[in-house]
């Protein structure tokens, strides 16, 4: 996982629970905590941090990951506004994740392992994203979609079927505008 993700997690914890809490969390897993955006860190380190936050704050892991995704979207927007502003609506932005956003991510962060979001338009107001990643972070994707919807001030419904956590080879995330 690239350091930028760790930095955004640190921002979320600092903003919502305070700097002291972040320091405590880091010390629990004996992490140095000095994350650099372009450096690649072990995925396990992020999962360990999430596990500690979940326990200390009594937030179920799945809910915490979703909240992290929601927090991550505006953090991305702050760093890369031109990528987000290239699309005026939620669904075209989601459809451009693989073809535009991940291409840009790989230019900036060579070696980044990005998930696959294969898009399939069901109608003008319904987009199916087929999520594939060995990290199985589909709840993070759900949170990012929620964060993006808030950014565009859009309401939507999400159907999540099938799911990697139930043995499927991908997660189907059907986003339908209300």
């Amino acid at each position: 996982m690239k350091g930028i993700v760790m930095n955004i997690l640190a921002d979320m914890v600092e903003q919502q629970f305070g700097m002291s809490e972040w320091n405590e969390i880091l010390s629990e897993i004996d992490a140095a905590g000095a994350y650099t955006a372009a450096v690649l860190y072990e995925d396990q380190e992020l999962l360990d941090l999430v596990g500690v936050i979940s326990r200390r704050q009594s937030i179920p892991v799945e809910d915490l990951i979703f909240a992290f995704g929601e927090f991550m979207f505006p953090a991305f927007y702050e760093r890369y506004p031109e990528l987000i502003d290239a699309e005026a609506h939620l669904l075209p932005l989601l459809a451009s994740i693989d073809s535009v956003i991940h291409v840009e991510v790989n230019k900036l962060y060579p070696g980044a392992v990005t998930p696959v979001f294969e898009e399939e338009w069901r109608s003008d107001s319904a987009l199916l994203l087929k999520y594939r990643s060995k990290r199985n972070l589909c709840r993070l994707a759900e949170g990012l979609i929620s964060g993006a919807a808030k950014h565009f001030d859009t309401t939507y419904e999400l159907e999540h079927e099938p799911c990697l956590h139930r043995g499927a080879d991908h997660c189907g995330l059907l986003v339908t505008l209300r």
Binding site: I4, A37, A38, R79, K107, L108, Y109, P110
Partner: peptide
């Protein structure tokens, strides 16, 4: 954050 943005700009140019 500013340094990272500068680094990213240079990285993009190098790319």
């Amino acid at each position: 954050l500013t340094s990272e943005k500068l680094l990213e700009a240079v990285t993009r140019e190098v790319y």
